[in-house]
Amino acid sequence: MKNRLKVLRAERDWTQGDLANALEVSRQTVNAIETGKFDPSLPLAFKAARLFNLKIEDIFSDEN
């Protein structure tokens, strides 16, 4: 699964730590999601969507 978390974060000038705090996860988790090593659960994806005021599909997309 691809995602635009890194781009969205950079647009807001947030660090991985900032985003991790906002999503209530560890910085390692944010990094793993950004690099595609870990796919977040649906609740976490919704949380990210709410945080960025976007739809889930605007942030996450299928690899294919």
Partner: peptide, 9 residues
């Protein structure tokens, strides 16, 4: 329980 989902994994 309080760990995030990656830490739990």
């Amino acid at each position: 329980q309080v760990q995030d989902e990656l830490q739990q994994k």
